[in-house]
Design a binder for these strands. Structure first.
Lengths: 340, 340
DNA sequence: CTTCCTTTGCAAAACGTTTTGGTTCGGTGT
DNA sequence: ACACCGAACCAAAACGTTTTGCAAAGGAAG
């Protein structure tokens, strides 16, 4: 590698001082340097392929132009990828770059990784969870602008974004109601997490709003796996006056419901309609017919989170906000009118 | 935020010069500083919560301790997450941190993103693709130690790692042979990519090695989607002397084969055995019965790639190597003995 | 022709490290 | 007693920027 071209090489080639080069390149509308000179310098810089050393400028301005993204786990779902991509895209648009770090469940490791981020002088961090949950912020992060992604915390001074679980469920259930269903079953999660409670609430809201009475036999609790969904759906669809439509806690649960339906000789959506939540394309697109579901907006949450933390950096006394993001319905082929 | 504690604060608190502090902290076995002093300095540094500024040290040593990871796309599959996690884990173990950047298909954008990485003075980059393919290295990367991840290139001087497609197929097919199958069908991909050719070759290798004659009617080409797999499997399983086992190009194709089997009233694995490739847990775990498949080792490839690029950085004249990584069989429930 | 701006450019300091070349000091060999 | 040596430490330079405080040049006003 030939020696890197620095600002002094540019200055020499352009026949000016380094000061002038710096001004020409940075100050968009400075009166310090004549427009003509500025253009000249810029041309020279481009020709030389000059790329400013951000270690140096970061050191000088106390601003690294780096964001940290610490996530709990990057698992088998594509959620993490979507969040990272959203974060990265938003960061890129504003001249930032993101360092990804993931700690598994190990809080000791997490602490050391945060320390590394601090050593690299990250200007802010996005603290992300893969599944909507409550967390407490690691003390190591105090002093760094931080926003929560897919997580909330008790401290009202920290901004956060999570999916609006209630709204997501309402959206899903209303798609069923719109198709004409009134006997609607729900397969909920056993776990005590925000999604469980929020989606149940949304389910009831939607029914109530449309004057549909809820039959308690039509609510069953299951492990949030395909097998759990299968057994739950088997139970729901075998009872008399069984539901004509199923609202499933997740796409994987919905996949179990598909299996139950075919096992019972029922076709989707003619005999039973199904909606899920997650929009895991790998599943929703692959099922047959395609699964109508509500998307969890990980990409958008990622974008929002980094834009938010960058806003905080630019203007440190922006009031914090806790956002719940609406979730769009993705229609495929699993919802139809009830069999008359 | 109180003013950051720097090396000079530590020096003052320890009653020594900054030089001594630096030596005490960095030189593991220096004769420059007495062991006792070294310990003292370290204690003081820890108590003060001193964390060296890597912008400064990077500037000084011409080494940022940052790796770039440029990937083509972070899509709906969990593959990208696995690669990133592998890369991040390996980097962490060696004191590095990774900057993730993804360019979509836009080579203009990719160029600008690589420029950003260069500005941050990354010590090396991992150039990753999500699906095994041939690429040419962007010229912007010349001069930076680079290794290819899930991609190969014509240039023998650049190291790369890809899954061993031939071996993966052999592994899958041999699992079927071991269970007793001899009439084995394959659903291959239409696309002209290394995986297509490699897996076909592995399929033939395995049959030949066990003296099984291949019936050309048992090979069909399909779109690598669930729907393609469904139609292909329908065709394969409807012919007379139909295969007793199906080797599918991917897990999604295998999912289509499941759908075809149940549509034909066949049960898995009693009437037909199925293996896939990918080990997409989201699919393989959710199918019923679970899908036996061959894992594409994205996590391990990610690890290998960063370890390799770090080796190149430490020792610039390590000879390059092009590695094909073996793929392990993951057994679930979709393979059984042929119906007699 | 002087004075006083305005415009344009430069030299030098600063950011927080690492490392080079000393300097001091207590001892050791002759 | 003399020079010398090594151990322990330190002052200062360097890394590549940005920015402050000045200086030079040129033009307008008096």
């Amino acid at each position: 590698m030939t020696t890197r071209v620095g600002i002094r090489e540019v200055a020499k080639a352009a026949g000016v001082s380094v000061t002038t080069v710096s001004h020409a390149l940075n100050d968009a509308t400075s009166s310090r340097v004549k427009a003509e000179t500025q253009q000249h310098v810029r041309d020279v810089a481009r020709n030389l392929g000059y790329a400013p050393n951000r270690l140096a400028s970061g050191l000088r301005n106390q601003r690294s132009q780096i964001l940290g993204l610490v996530s709990d786990e990057i698992t088998t779902t594509p959620f993490a990828g979507a969040m990272i991509r959203g974060a990265q895209d938003a960061a890129y648009e504003r001249g930032y770059v993101v360092m990804v770090v993931n700690s598994g469940l190990d809080s000791e490791l997490e602490h050391r990784e945060i320390t590394m981020l601090q050593q690299h002088q990250v200007d802010g961090v996005v603290y992300a969870r893969l599944y909507h949950q409550g967390v407490e912020l690691p003390p190591a992060l105090s002093g760094i602008p931080t926003v929560l992604l897919d997580a909330v915390t008790g401290d009202p001074s920290v901004s956060s974004i999570v999916p609006d679980e209630v709204n997501a469920a309402e959206t899903a259930v209303e798609a069923l109601i719109r198709a004409g269903h009134t006997r609607i079953g729900m397969i909920n999660n056993v776990d005590d997490i925000p999604a469980t409670h929020g989606r149940l609430e949304g389910f009831h809201n939607a029914l109530r709003r449309h004057g549909i009475e809820h039959d308690p036999r039509h609510l069953v609790i299951a492990e949030p796996e395909t097998s759990g969904g299968r057994e739950a759906a088997l139970a729901l669809l075998s009872q008399q006056d069984s539901p004509t439509a199923l609202f499933c806690f997740s796409d994987r649960v919905a996949m179990g419901a598909y299996q139950a339906a075919t096992a019972l000789g029922l076709t989707i959506p003619d005999d039973v309609s199904i909606v899920g939540i997650d929009n895991l394309e790998l599943i929703a697109d692959s099922l047959w017919p395609g699964l109508t579901t509500v998307a969890l907006p990980h990409y958008d949450m990622g974008r929002w989170a980094v834009n938010r933390v960058l806003d905080d950096i630019d203007n440190p006394d922006t009031p914090p906000e806790q956002v719940r993001l609406a979730c769009p319905l993705i229609e495929r082929g699993s919802v139809g009118p009830p069999r008359t």
